[in-house]
Amino acid sequence: MNTDMKRRVFLKGSLAASTVGIAVSAGLLAPQTVLAAWPEKSFHAKSPKDALDGVFGSGQTEASNKIKIKAPDIAENGAVVPVTVKSDIPDVESIAILASANDSPLIALFNLGQNAMADVSARIKMGKTGDVIAVVKAGGKLYANRKGVKVTIGGCGG
C-alpha cells in the first residue's frame, strides 16, 4: 500500500516534469526552424560582393544617398562601433550591414515586416579601418551606401 502510494506520487511528478519538458522543447523548436534559413555561406563569405550574392541573389548594387549611415568617423574601440542605418527609399524589404575590411564582411541582415520602418541601429565589430556598407533591398532592387570609419584599436583580434 505504502509503496503503491509512493509510486503514484512518483508517476504524477514525472508526468508533470515531462509536460514541462515538452513545452520547453516546443518553445525551442520554433526558432530552430527559422534557423535553417540562416545564410551560413554569406556570413562566411570573404568579400562584400560574395556575401550579398548569397543573401540577395545578386551582388549588383546601385549607389544611393537616400541611405543614411550614422557611424563615428573615428572609432576608438573597434569591438563596439555603433551604427544606425536609415533610408527614405519606399518599400524597404531588408537592410544588410557590412564592414568591408572584416574577414567576414557580412555582419547583420534585417528583414523588415510590413510596419517596420527603415531605421535600425546595432553595434558592430570592425577589425580595422574600412567602410561600413549598408545595403537596402526595396522593390526588388539593391541600393547601397558606405561610410568610412577609422578604427584605432581592432575589434576582432585577441
Binding site: 562601433v81 572584416n102 555582419i107 547583420a108 534585417f110 528583414n111 517596420a116 531605421d119 546595432a122
Partner: peptide, 17 residues
C-alpha cells in the same frame, strides 16, 4: 523584424528599430 546576425555583431548586442 527578423534579423540574422553573424559574429560581427558586438558583444552584448544592442538593437534598435
Amino acid at each position: 523584424l527578423d534579423a540574422q546576425w553573424g559574429g560581427g555583431v558586438s558583444k552584448n548586442p544592442y538593437l534598435a528599430f
